[in-house]
Design a protein around this nucleic acid. Structure first.
Lengths: 341, 341
DNA sequence: GACCAATTTGGAACCGGTTCATTGACCAAT
DNA sequence: ATTGGTCAATGAACCGGTTCCAAATTGGTC
């Protein structure tokens, strides 16, 4: 790390060195056609010999575009979850946008503060999740954002573009499946019901019961937090009841580990003692013994849609009203569910 | 997403509205002491009523500091790996730096291009991994970076700060353990041996054999790629040999899934038919049946060190020569290893 | 009331690009 | 020889903050 002594070279240094005007250097940098080959080469030689690097800050200043896209997600290290971010990053990189990734811990204060920081940085577009789709402050912040914004896995705020997995259908499929095996006491774990995924999952769960002419035990719906600790504690508590659930549907995308840890500690075998469905697929679900039945959707497609929608807004290709893209969810049946004993 | 019509308000609009000079507004924004309460309040009212947001681009332009830290890592979705990034982000956020996260796919071209983009954006500091510590182009790019830079899990380039887990010791412990159980044909899977982790792991593996007065079978050292597909294929191929290994040490941080998939497909039971040690701990390792013995280190501490070292450089608190912080690695013994049959 | 020092405020220059009106050079047509 | 048109290149203004010197104001002292 060579601590730089003097200031860096500017376009004016290049101009002086190549004996041309600053405007000419700018045109060379931007591949403007009206530069003779001779001059262009002279400028390029000067750039190379000085080791000049264009200053994106100054460029943004004048052009009022930063070519930055900000993305804020709940948490980085949710296995598999980040795949959609990866795909989005790929697309933005290809379109020559710098991708700025931040995590929010699902915390409203962090979300608001990030949104503000993004605005101050004048990023060209934002892709994010928010913790609560009903919070007036969050709604206002999202709606009044000065840059195009795409919400991920959120559905309610109609005035912005959205991409969401069809969690209602997913939860319906999972619950249908468990009901068809004969389960009636099916525990449902979801996060805070204020955001779309949890709300939709609860709806899908209820849909399935209703369609079967049954009524779910409301005390088995545990909607509070997405954290692993929560899932661990709740699983442990539920399984100690006199009439424990015969099946557990851990609907949050990263809840499986918490539930498995609790079941392991309680000495309960998945499949034999209790059936388990995971709301998100992962290596853990696939490679456990027995392998865990899980809900699955095309995460890359989600990222692709989000990135494409955002790019269309940022570049002005689209001025149509905001829309919501829904990604289908399907159930991968493995070995973790059997009829209750 | 309200598409903004006119241009945004500037400090001059605020000045006009509050009937003060632009310099005064700037002073209010930066909490400069020499502003009377009266004027400060008038300016703040104007800011609020206009909905003015400070333009970080213009600010960076003048101050030559962007308050951005860039981070480039191999891949976002390596379970657990990202914990150190999370911790670093937390620290940078607390210090009022914006964190810019990118992935490189362990690809030299991407690494070089990102480093260049970071330079153009004039980020204040960089935290990253590189695919090959011996590549002259990469070395040059890292050494000539105009901003402070910390390498993660790389050791060789002495002219920059580094934070690395002690993979040599980790591999030594894992191999010692397998040797002590009586294994002799121990397959080792690592990534490209040009980067520190793989090189160190191979060294640790050899150390253990040498200390036991044994010679490892070189054909069992599979150093080529970190990808899951590679691990899958190699595991499958090795287990089909006439004399297959009795133990597999998947030393890469995210190789376990690939190996497990191959063993499952081959109908081999971990523990009974083949012993397995994972080079990185994860939910998958902990919750598999049997639970997988794995190497572990404090990832948050790694992130903390990296962030702190970088901040010290960025803020000029440190001008001492670059150093390398080594994070200890330990072996968590679980149930996946038994003496060979 | 005069004077001086300290504090507050004003406003121009500056950061490093982009853009555009203007100039200059060259060629073809009249 | 003059005019018109095209194409290259020039250089000043501009983007929106920060900074710093100068000017204005305040307060205290004699």
């Amino acid at each position: 790390m060579v601590k730089k002594a003097g200031r860096e070279f500017t376009i004016r240094d290049v101009a002086r060195s190549a004996e041309v005007a600053v405007g000419t250097v700018s045109r060379v940098l931007n591949d403007h056609p009206s530069v003779t080959r001779d001059v262009r080469e002279r400028v390029q030689r000067a750039i190379a010999s000085l080791g000049y690097e264009r200053n994106a800050v100054a460029q943004s200043m004048r052009s009022a575009r930063t070519h930055m896209i900000a993305c804020a997600i709940r948490d980085f290290d949710i296995p598999g979850y980040v795949s959609y971010v990866k795909e989005a990053e790929r697309i933005f990189r290809a379109a020559d946008y710098t991708f700025l990734l931040a995590s929010t811990a699902n915390d409203k204060a962090v979300e608001l503060s990030l949104l503000r920081k993004f605005a101050q940085r004048r990023v060209d577009g934002v892709m994010m999740t928010i913790s609560d789709e009903n919070d007036p402050e969050l709604i206002a912040a999202v709606e009044q954002a000065k840059m195009p914004l795409v919400l991920i896995d959120r559905e309610m705020i109609q005035s912005v573009d959205r991409v969401a997995a069809d969690h209602r259908s997913g939860a319906r499929q999972a619950t249908d499946y468990l009901l068809s095996l004969g389960h009636r006491r099916i525990a449902l774990f979801v996060g805070d019901p204020h955001a779309h995924p949890s709300r939709s999952r609860i709806a899908g769960y209820r849909d399935a019961f209703r369609a079967a002419g049954l009524e779910p035990d409301p005390s088995l719906i545990r909607d509070h937090s997405l954290s692993n600790e929560f899932t661990f504690r709740e699983t442990a508590a539920l399984m100690q009841r006199p009439e424990p659930p015969t099946a557990v549907f851990v609907a949050g995308i990263d809840m499986l580990a918490g539930a498995m840890r609790a079941l392991k500690a309680a000495g309960l075998a998945i499949g034999r003692d209790v059936s388990v469905v995971s709301g998100g697929d992962s290596d853990l679900a696939e490679l456990s013994t027995p392998a865990i039945t899980a809900l699955q959707w095309d995460r890359a497609e989600m990222g692709r849609h989000a990135a494409q929608m955002l790019l269309d807004r940022v570049t002005g290709r689209t001025t149509e009203p905001p829309r919501c893209v829904r990604v289908p969810v399907s159930l991968v049946v493995r070995e973790s569910c059997r009829p209750p004993r």
